[in-house]
């Protein structure tokens, strides 16, 4: 078995196209999903049982159903109600809905953990609501929002591969095209693997930069002796031996 580079030399434009579409879909779904998530989180603060129950059902359903099934339900359901739109849009809508359930949970947890007393002390000293948000609230909740939001965004990028099954010509779809044309699954999937790997690595790195910008000190865990570390730490070296 050899790795045939000529396949990649011939088909690289398809991979570029697919990558570009995957990026655009994920970007759109992140933004739409986050907006829906914020709206849901805010709605769930309204003291109404009916609203709370409706949101809970929405969140539970989206968490219980595989994304591929949600995608097909939307894909077959939209034309059913007389709406005909391209598969790319259908896929982006489904991905946004799926992500919204997870973002909603994160935002809701952040809202519930808001430091209300600190907000009050900012307002009482004369800051406007906006200034209090900017100087007191955001610097504290953004670092807590970034890591879980990043996780969900990464999950979404990976779930977007499923859009290939409704013929959206994104990255995974293109790798299947290449695989079908060349009967060289190894080359096709190796290439697509590396591209997804690169995308997720870049997003994760960007998130860690964002997190560091807000200067949250990570609490370093001390594992005590090397002996304890030989059970409780999976790092190559016990942390305390580091600088």
């Amino acid at each position: 078995m050899t790795f045939d580079l000529s396949i990649l030399a011939q088909y690289w434009p398809l991979f570029v196209k697919g990558t570009w579409l995957t990026i655009r879909i994920c970007l759109a779904a992140t933004i739409i999903g986050y907006v829906i998530g914020i709206v849901l989180a805010l709605l769930s603060q309204i003291p109404s049982r009916a609203i709370k129950a409706a949101i809970e059902i929405y969140l539970l359903t989206l968490r219980a159903i595989p994304f591929i099934i949600l995608l097909f339900v939307v894909y077959y359901g939209l034309p059913f109600s007389g709406i005909r739109i391209p598969a790319v849009i259908t896929g982006t809508i489904a991905l946004s809905l799926y992500a919204s359930a997870y973002y909603a949970e994160i935002v809701r947890a952040a809202i519930e953990a808001l430091p209300r007393g600190q907000y009050e002390s900012a307002r009482v000293i004369g800051m406007s609501a906006l200034q209090a948000m900017r100087h007191v609230i955001f610097p504290q909740i953004v670092p807590t929002l970034v890591p879980p939001s990043t996780n969900i965004t990464l999950t979404m990028i990976k779930e977007s591969a499923v859009l290939s099954s409704i013929t959206v010509a994104e990255l995974t779809y293109q790798s299947l095209v290449v695989q079908g044309n060349t009967f060289a699954p190894f080359e096709a999937f190796a290439a697509v693997t590396l591209i997804y790997w690169a995308i997720t690595a870049i997003v994760a790195h960007a998130a860690s930069l964002l997190e560091r910008r807000f200067g949250r000190a990570r609490s370093e865990h001390l594992v005590g002796s090397a002996l304890a570390a030989s059970f409780l730490s999976l790092e190559a070296m016990p942390k305390r031996s580091r600088r």
Binding site: V162, P185, V192, T193
Partner: peptide, 14 residues
């Protein structure tokens, strides 16, 4: 890094 960075669908294809 590979498992966390790539879609499960691709892993199944592989």
């Amino acid at each position: 890094s590979f498992i966390r960075g790539t879609p499960l669908l691709i892993q199944i294809f592989i």
